[in-house]
């Protein structure tokens, strides 16, 4: 609840269309993994796009380290340390893995620093080093997702946001993705993620946010969210959560 990242009362929609997000909020704690859950169309992805600056805010407040950052462009967000991986993974399919990583540091404009940071990434994700000169589009879904997530780290951001990193991946790979998420959080980076598989997402997160109809219904430590019987019934498919 410090003045790290505050998201309050945000209202947003596409074009002149109806508001998809209506007075949504969430609490962000530095260095923790936050998982946004909710049914289809609840506004989860929209929330991330709004925070990332891909969508103009109609109302609301986003402050980061004491600065009002609502309404900034995506690249301005990036410069302030907030990175985003959208659902489509946003890779450049006909560029190599190394080139994709270089694009991750596009705003650095410093070749030497960039090369050494890419080396660091390769040390943390050896699979990417193996594939360094392969076109991103030819890798498996899991590898592509790894690349997309790793690419955000080039800029050493404070906050990274992943929109459904598990989308279209096999269960075993999904677990690997969550391990990567944990790995990233362990280095002190704050993670926000949207997850369709709510139980899975909450289990790997510290903080859970339930979104429906564009509003924040509930938020709290993810164990509490998982244990809440109302949420279990409505959003976790009535699964028994031990």
């Amino acid at each position: 609840m410090s003045d790290f990242l505050t998201i309050k009362g945000i209202t947003a929609g596409y074009g002149d269309g109806p508001a998809i997000l209506d007075d949504a909020k969430m609490t962000v704690q530095e260095g923790k993994v936050h998982c946004i859950i909710g049914p289809n169309g609840a506004g989860k992805s929209t929330m991330m796009k709004a925070i990332a600056g891909m969508l103009p805010l109609r109302k609301g407040e986003i402050t980061f380290k004491g600065e009002n950052i609502a309404g900034l462009r995506p690249d301005q967000m990036l410069r302030r340390g907030i990175a985003f991986v959208p659902q489509e993974r946003a890779l450049f399919p006909k560029m190599t893995v190394r080139e994709n990583l270089r694009m991750g540091g596009y705003i650095l404009n410093d070749d030497k620093a960039l090369s050494s940071r890419i080396d660091e990434i390769f040390d943390r994700f050896p699979i990417l080093r193996e594939r360094a000169d392969q076109h991103a589009g030819t890798m498996s879904g899991g590898q592509q997702q790894t690349l997309a997530m790793a690419r955000t780290l080039i800029l050493r951001p404070d906050v990274v946001m992943f929109d459904e990193p598990s989308l279209g991946l096999a269960p075993k790979i999904v677990r690997e993705m969550f391990q990567i998420v944990r790995l990233i959080a362990d280095t002190g980076v704050t993670v926000l993620l949207v997850e369709q598989n709510a139980v899975m997402g909450l289990r790997h997160a510290d903080w859970g946010v339930v979104l429906d109809l564009g509003r924040t219904l509930f938020e709290g430590p993810s164990a509490e969210v998982l244990a809440d019987p109302r949420i279990q019934e409505l959003y976790l498919g009535g699964q028994k959560v031990a």
């Binding site: 995506p74 690249d75 959208p86 946003a90 399919p93 560029m95 694009m103 596009y106």
Partner: peptide
């Protein structure tokens, strides 16, 4: 790099700070 990136994925390029 920016030209190739924009060609392949305009939105992603913008997201990474390409004008």
């Amino acid at each position: 790099y920016a030209i190739r990136a924009t060609t392949q994925n305009r939105e992603a390029a913008a997201l990474l700070g390409v004008n």
